[in-house]
Nucleic acid binder design. Sequence first.
DNA 1: AATATTCATCGTATTTATACGATGGTATGC
DNA 2: GCATACCATCGTATAAATACGATGAATATT
Lengths: 111, 111
Amino acid sequence: MASAKTAQFSQTEQDLAAFAKVLSHPARLAILKILAAQNACICGEIVEVLPLAQSTVSQHLKELKTAGLIDGTIDGPKSCYCINWKAFEKFNAEFNSLFSSLKTTNEKGCC
Amino acid sequence: MASAKTAQFSQTEQDLAAFAKVLSHPARLAILKILAAQNACICGEIVEVLPLAQSTVSQHLKELKTAGLIDGTIDGPKSCYCINWKAFEKFNAEFNSLFSSLKTTNEKGCC
DNA sequence: AATATTCATCGTATTTATACGATGGTATGC
DNA sequence: GCATACCATCGTATAAATACGATGAATATT
């Protein structure tokens, strides 16, 4: 049955969990770093750097794109990817909100 | 073969990905909220609130504990869990570091 | 001592994630 | 037109995550 119970949690929790899942693989973190550092963000360049097959990298790119974290534009036979900074800022803010809300709700501690 | 290639990435990327994975399930986010809000953090109380079986909740608690995000102390027949705020702050800082480093490495953008 | 309560662990079923090769589609170059 | 380069998608195999019931260990209660 796996994670069929996911739907029974709040929308905020689901959204944050989904975003965390995108960041939960080192390859996707590496891709984000590459995209942030370079201005030319061709898929082929990422494939050369990462220890993964082209199809696997393409799959990770798709997940990042589905999550809205990156944009992809077709540039002739090549594909150019770049970080969607607007979405990125939104997620960054949501994470900070999570952390700060956890901290503020805690008063005395227990253990 | 799944994620056997994980070991070929940097330690930092692996650590951050592992932490993100802990946060990538709504049940674990909900547990963290409960632990932050309450001072009494008995496993049974969490089970009552969440739409999950006791064994499943215990499993999520174990993962949070393995990640170092929470501490658990045996209190008679009951178990008391609470957030490890020191580890929590560390992870919070690492996330902020990730976000800010991505932002600073980006200069012109491309797309 | 016997029973009940609380929870961790084990075993297992199911879903999801990861990874690759193969294929096909699109545009470029000859 | 034909070959080449680039990349997305498909199909598939394997690993990991999720969830639950059952069991057992430890303490508390009667």
